[in-house]
C-alpha cells in the first residue's frame, strides 16, 4: 500500500539551516548535511532542502551544501531555491538532488516546468506554491493568492488555478505552503490543501503549520494531502519522524515504519 509521506524540510540561508515564523523572525537551527542525516535516521521519508534567500538575493543554489547533504543520503532529496533554468536544475541534479522545487521562476516563466521535465522526467519537478488567504474574501481558500520571492511578492494569481496550470505544464508534484499557517505549529491549512489536491491529479505535499501528529492525520484525511512537510517540530526535538509515524499508524494512516 502506498504510504503517506512525512517530509523533513531544511530551510537554508548562508549554508545554515534556519527557521522563521510566517516567513520572518529567522533563527539558526544547524548544519544542513548533519540535520538531513539525523532526519533520515529518525525516519523521515524524504528531505527537502530550500535555499530560502536564493531568489531574493539573486544567488544561485548552494551546490556545495547540496553535495554535502546528498553524500550518503539514501532517501529522496529535493532541492529548491534560485533554480531559474534547466541548466540550474542540471547542476543541482548533478550535485545529488533527486528532484527540484521551483517557485518564483515557474511563475515568471512557466515553460521552465516542461523544460526541466523534458530532460529529467516530470517526476523530478516539484512546483512550490506559497499561498496566502484573502481575509476579506467570502471564499478565503478559493481566493487564496500565490506569493513569490520567499513570500515577499503577491502575484495576483489564484492558488488553485496556478496548481492546475503547473500540472498541465508537466509538474510531478505540488508543494503547497500556507503562509498563514507557516511556523505557527497550529495545524496545516486542511481546507486549502484539499481544494488543491482535488483540483489536480498529481501528488500534493502540504506545508506550513505542523505542530503535532494530529495535524498530520488531519491533513492526510480532511486535507487529502499525499505528503506533509515540517521543519521546526523536527529540528528542535519536539518529535522525530518515527514517533510521529507510530502515532499516525495508530490513527489509521498508512505510513512506512
Amino acid at each position: 500500500m502506498l504510504t503517506k509521506r512525512v517530509i523533513a524540510c531544511l530551510d537554508v540561508r548562508g549554508g545554515r539551516v534556519v527557521k522563521g515564523i510566517q516567513f520572518v523572525d529567522i533563527i539558526d537551527a544547524g548544519d544542513p548535511a548533519e540535520l538531513a542525516h539525523r532526519h533520515a535516521a529518525a525516519g523521515a521519508d524524504e528531505i527537502v532542502l530550500l535555499d530560502i534567500t536564493a531568489t531574493h538575493e539573486g544567488r544561485g543554489t548552494l551546490i556545495d551544501t547540496v553535495k554535502r547533504t546528498a553524500a550518503q543520503l539514501f532517501i529522496p532529496l529535493t532541492v529548491g531555491g534560485g533554480i531559474r533554468s534547466a541548466e540550474d536544475a542540471a547542476a543541482v541534479f548533478n550535485a545529488g538532488a533527486d528532484k527540484v522545487s521551483i517557485n518564483s521562476s515557474a511563475i515568471t516563466r512557466p515553460e521552465l516546468i516542461g523544460e526541466i521535465g523534458q530532460s529529467f522526467g516530470a517526476q523530478a519537478v516539484i512546483v512550490a506554491i506559497d499561498a496566502r488567504r484573502d481575509a476579506n474574501s467570502s471564499d478565503p481558500g478559493g481566493d487564496a493568492e500565490v506569493y513569490v520571492s520567499g513570500g515577499r511578492k503577491p502575484t495576483g494569481r489564484k492558488v488553485v488555478d496556478w496548481a492546475k496550470e503547473a500540472e498541465q505544464r508537466g509538474a510531478g508534484e505540488i508543494l503547497l505552503t500556507s503562509m498563514d499557517a507557516d511556523g505557527t505549529r497550529a495545524g496545516f491549512d486542511d481546507e486549502l490543501t484539499a481544494l488543491v489536491s482535488q483540483a489536480v491529479q498529481i501528488p500534493v505535499i502540504a506545508s506550513g503549520g505542523a505542530g503535532n501528529a494530529q495535524h498530520f492525520a488531519d491533513v492526510f484525511g480532511r486535507g487529502k494531502a499525499d505528503a506533509a512537510l515540517a521543519a521546526s517540530i523536527f529540528h528542535f526535538g519536539v518529535t522525530d519522524s518515527w514517533s510521529l509515524k507510530r502515532e499516525l499508524q495508530l490513527a489509521g494512516v498508512p505510513v512506512r515504519l
Binding site: 502506498l2 508534484e173 498529481i202 501528488p203
Partner: peptide, 18 residues
Amino acid sequence: PTTFEDAELKSPHVGWNS
C-alpha cells in the same frame, strides 16, 4: 489508470510502497 475501483488514482505514483 486515472481511476481505480471507482476512486481517483493520483499519478505519478510517488512515495514509499511495499
